[in-house]
């Protein structure tokens, strides 16, 4: 399949799903009280955009995800590369990562509310922590999978530790690190929405939760739709980032 037709299908398939939904409601095949048609959801969406309600919630969520991604991925990449290069650091840190990794990220929300308060910081930190785990695990894997011969070339050329980090470990692990960042971005939205269900008065998660509580299902669906679109856009952006950041690894 050509890359152009692949991109075309990437856009067409979610739109097709919406069309099927709309037709199914209009034909009376599904209950409109539980599944309002996309046209009605879109009307609510435009209304919320006009009143500004949508932008406040979207802005709040994007800010939290952005800050959490930045903190989590910076820490994950840095510590991950050091772990990958140093068996000593790996031996010290790996058990801690392995032991805490199985705890579901959403389960730490109450703990973080206690530690960081109910303000912005707790939400950002929940996102940062979730991102940190996938990024660090991918980074360590990425560094460890670098062919030993590249590190030998570095030693043979008498490079410093910092140079080895910059010119061998980081680019060598970059394809795997970017896979980690992609996963991290997806998980960031997942945990953020859960974090916003409780202890928040703004955000897309809050919109969804409130929509359910006051039985304003249109608002709930707007929230779900926005999350879906954002998630999809983030994926596209990450693909572009990958394309330009890893020019030696292009598949298309």
């Amino acid at each position: 399949m050509t890359s152009r037709s692949t991109r075309f299908l990437n856009i067409v398939s979610p739109l097709g799903l919406l069309v099927i939904w709309q037709l199914a409601v209009q034909a009376g095949l599904v209950d409109r009280r539980m599944f309002p048609p996309p046209s009605e959801i879109l009307t609510t969406l435009f209304h919320m955009a006009e009143t500004g309600e949508l932008w406040i919630n979207l802005g709040a969520s994007l800010w939290r995800v952005g800050a959490g991604l930045a903190i989590g991925s910076t820490a994950g990449v840095t510590i991950g590369i050091i772990m990958g290069l140093s068996p000593l650091v790996r031996a010290l840190v790996q058990p801690i990562i392995s032991a805490t990794y199985p705890v579901p990220r959403t389960a730490i929300v109450p703990l973080f509310l206690i530690i960081f308060g109910i303000g912005e910081l707790s939400k950002v930190m929940v996102v940062a922590t979730s991102v940190f785990y996938v990024v660090i695990i991918n980074t360590v894997t990425g560094v460890l999978s670098i062919d030993k011969v590249y590190l030998d070339v570095g030693r043979d050329m008498k490079v410093s530790r910092l140079q080895a980090f910059r010119t061998i470990a980081l680019p060598g692990a970059l394809p795997t690190i970017i896979s980690g960042l992609k996963l991290g971005a997806g998980i960031a939205f997942l945990v953020l929405v859960v974090a916003e269900y409780t202890g928040s008065q703004t955000g897309i998660g809050y919109m969804i939760w409130e929509g359910w509580q006051i039985l304003d299902l249109d608002q709930m669906y707007v929230g779900l739709l926005v999350i879906a679109v954002i998630g999809w856009l983030v994926n596209l952006i990450m693909d572009e980032v990958e394309y330009f950041a890893v020019p030696w690894h292009r598949h298309r």
Binding site: D152, V153, M157, Q163, T167, P171, W248
Partner: peptide
Amino acid sequence: MIFQEHAVFPWFSVEKNIEYGLRM
């Protein structure tokens, strides 16, 4: 050292590979 094979850095262009030792 010139290694067996696959020792050129895949993440650097040809010229960046050639100048690697000098740059470092």
